[in-house]
């Protein structure tokens, strides 16, 4: 059986189209752009610059982690739940579209927003918070935070496949906000009561925040254990994705 194969170049064009359409889609949904873009930056300006001027560098790393966590979870979770209910994936699955195109498009969309959040926060930190980093550290922060979103992409993808579009925003907020707090993204883990401190390493954003703190030179240490933790969490959330995917296939009608 001969299946007409798309040339690589054309294939890349369709990936490009998915990414482009995903950006447009995110930009046109104010319910996404305002909370994910404005809130973390505003919180950082209040808590990281105005209230704790001495901790601006520390809080830059953790609030930037908070920002990418939200941008990723909402782009994937709410986006996929909504589009699934619209029947978008039913139509896409009946075309030769590479399914990976949807995921890659989503990832680029979330990454673009994450980058916008990080760059805005870094500008505020540099201009108003007196945070001074090496050029390599600024870039390192961007690179670490964007590549470290893998587990949150998978968590959002899994929830998006399992939840209805009405339930998705509520459930994701319930996951997102406690996860952010308990991982020490707002208040450093060291200020938690002792028993709560032991919980933090079991939460994926804690490890991403630690990597962000290391790359900006706030905290010394080896990054490998944190990368490993993020990979393990990714594997766990991948199982959620598989369960959600199977359920979607069984229910598609």
């Amino acid at each position: 059986m001969n299946v007409a194969r798309m040339p690589i170049g054309r294939r890349l064009v369709s990936y490009g189209q998915f990414i482009y359409c995903q950006w447009l889609n995110l930009l046109r949904v104010p319910a996404y752009t305002i909370p994910t873009l404005v809130f973390p930056v505003m919180f950082y300006a209040f808590f990281g610059i105005l209230m704790n001027p001495g901790a601006s560098a520390y809080l830059l790393a953790t609030f930037a982690t908070f920002g990418v966590l939200g941008a990723t979870l909402f782009a994937f979770g709410v986006g996929i739940a909504t589009e699934r209910a619209q029947g978008w994936y039913t139509l896409i699955r009946a075309t030769p579209a590479p399914l990976l195109g949807i995921v890659i498009g989503k990832w680029f969309g979330a990454a673009l927003f994450s980058a916008a959040i990080i760059v805005t926060m870094c500008s505020i930190a540099g201009f108003f918070g007196g945070v001074r980093l090496e050029q390599s550290q600024w870039w390192g922060l961007l690179a670490v935070l964007i590549s470290g979103t893998l587990p949150f992409c998978l968590l959002g993808l899994g929830l998006g496949l399992l939840l209805s579009p009405n339930a998705a925003p509520a459930v994701i907020n319930i996951v997102y906000l406690p996860l952010a707090f308990l991982s020490g993204l707002w208040v450093p883990v060291s200020q938690f009561p002792a028993w709560l401190q032991t919980l933090a390493p079991w939460l994926p954003p804690y490890h991403l925040a630690e990597l962000a703190l290391q790359v900006t030179g706030v905290r010394p240490g080896e990054p490998w254990s944190h990368w490993l933790a993020l990979l393990l969490f990714s594997a766990v959330f991948a199982v959620l994705v598989i369960i959600g995917w199977r359920r979607m296939l069984a229910m598609s009608k």
């Binding site: 054309r10 064009v13 369709s14 490009g16 189209q17 998915f18 359409c21 447009l24 889609n25 046109r28 949904v29 589009e83 619209q86 029947g87 978008w88 039913t90 139509l91 009946a94 075309t95 030769p96 579209a97 598609s252 009608k253």
Partner: peptide, 23 residues
């Protein structure tokens, strides 16, 4: 399909270009 829809924030031309790129 009756059960299918599209990402509805996209314009007509954006949808057509996206689909054209798939075939």
């Amino acid at each position: 399909l009756q059960s299918s829809g599209v990402q509805d924030t996209l314009t007509v031309i954006e949808l057509l270009n996206l689909f054209a790129s798939l075939y």
